[in-house]
Design a protein around this nucleic acid. Structure first.
Lengths: 270, 270
DNA sequence: AGAGAAAAACTCACTCTGAGAACAACAAGG
DNA sequence: CCTTGTTGTTCTCAGAGTGAGTTTTTCTCT
């Protein structure tokens, strides 16, 4: 680290007690969360409509300022993941186990008109959750389908069928999140994070098909999943029938211990 | 984003003109750079010895505060990568093409005793560069060999042969950087970033062996590199002889256009 | 010219993969 | 009860990829 704003020599304790934090021209730090899930076979993202300036009325990723010290509003965030979970639970209740992962940090000088805002983006892989409530500073929140940059234009399909741009640089953050998700499905077992605790191989394949946007050969997928040690383990139970249309009852599995897949599932392949 | 410190309704322009940035309890934002290279077959990292409190005298990753506005010291950093390159060039001159990549952001409440410091870590893959000069606020800077967490203890082997802990949480950042480098060699062509513009297949294999810490089967490596489309392309030249010991002159290659490798080179394999 | 050395090409058994077919287990209807 | 349609699971086989070793090519040095 560099050292502007330091006083002169001496021991470290004396240095710290006379230290003035104001010298550093500090920036505001926020967390923004791209929470992804899969509904009806297509990727969805949790968005909130901004109730305040700037960009009032735009859809945006759930986010908020990192609390650097205790205040009237609440206690300081011990670490960045705590802040990410906090802003997310303001919108929707979360299950006990949730996959949270840092995506990246966005800090261009002009990305927020108020001042320099450094945003630490997180991504969440969640199973299908109920519709969210409206949190602080938002007029509306919803899981909206994501239509990727490949299909003619970025953005999120609005309820009316059109597309709207997200506030700030959140379109780019969302694209980065989906691209990261696509890559991580190849060599990690994260696909199970989109599913309830027990699931069928077909449901797991549905996750890959939704995120990768292509169909996979069912039989080969089945073989490969079971051949990858530690990916899934059989619970001994069968899925109960879903009603219409016959078909054999599928076996139920839960996630195995392995985090990394050897060998990986390659996207380029069938 | 959340909205503390906002005034009441009205149009966006009026909102911005009366906005007070001081309300947000801001944090300090720094960039720290883990610059990796390979010297004599082992990974090295660029470190600087701190000339100022806190942790004066400890080795640390090159870093500094992000400049959020113009000041006596210099202009504001337009974006975070600019800040990372700035703090790095204070220590060593860089070649024209350099691989810079964001690693992650570290923001635990107690990671710096002065105040809350959010550090955006970057990593650089560089070819073997000359010894660095001493920059601002450092008494010494050097490329030091990295001895990983697998070999009994983290840290960097000091010049005396012992190990020293790095300042702040830089040991953890460095471990994360090396682990990221190991993973990215598998499925990207980043190994070429450690080499000069033209190189031999044997030199490329040396990068893999240094980062992965294991030997690879030379013949199979050769076959696989040439079978991966876009990884390398032949320049038509041969390497000139290095002096002692006979042997066939190796063909020279340069990096191909491909960023992602299909199929990848798997670490678990030989 | 000959010995030694490094790079590159070749060989072969084995495994993995893509594609399709076959088999198993279920629901609904006649 | 038996047939038909649907879904999940297993099997088959040809082609591609892989690990390990051997051979050939091309260089330096003596």
């Amino acid at each position: 680290m560099g050292d502007d704003g330091r006083h002169d020599d001496g021991d470290e304790h004396g240095f710290l007690s006379s230290y003035d934090p104001g010298v550093f021209a500090p920036a505001a730090v926020t967390v923004d969360v791209a929470a992804l899930t899969i509904r009806e076979g297509t990727p969805h993202v949790l968005l909130a409509r901004r109730a305040a300036h700037p960009q009032r009325g735009s859809w945006a990723l759930p986010g908020g300022f990192v609390r650097t010290r205790d205040s009237r509003i609440g206690p300081a965030d011990p670490d960045l993941p705590d802040a990410a979970l906090r802003v997310l639970t303001e919108k929707t209740p979360l299950p006990a186990e949730i996959h949270l992962e840092q995506l990246g940090t966005y800090g261009a000088l002009d990305r927020d008109p108020r001042m320099r805002v450094i945003s630490v983006a997180y991504m969440v892989f969640a199973p299908d959750l109920p519709d969210p409530g409206t949190g602080r500073d938002t007029t509306e929140a919803a899981w909206l389908p994501w239509t990727g940059p490949g299909t003619g234009g970025d953005g999120v399909a609005g309820t009316g069928g059109g597309r709207e741009r997200l506030a700030f640089d959140h379109d780019r953050i969302l694209d980065d999140a989906v691209e990261r998700a696509r890559a991580k499905l190849e060599y990690t077992s994260l696909a199970t994070a989109f599913l309830p605790p027990t699931f069928t191989i077909t449901a797991l394949r549905g996750v890959y098909e939704a995120i990768w946007g292509r169909t996979l050969h069912a039989a080969n997928f089945h073989r490969k999943i079971l051949a990858t040690p530690g990916f899934v383990e059989h619970t001994g139970d069968l899925a109960d029938r879903g009603g219409s249309g016959g078909g054999r009852r599928a076996r139920l599995y839960r996630g195995g211990g392995a985090a990394l897949l050897h060998p990986p599932l390659l996207r380029g392949a069938q």
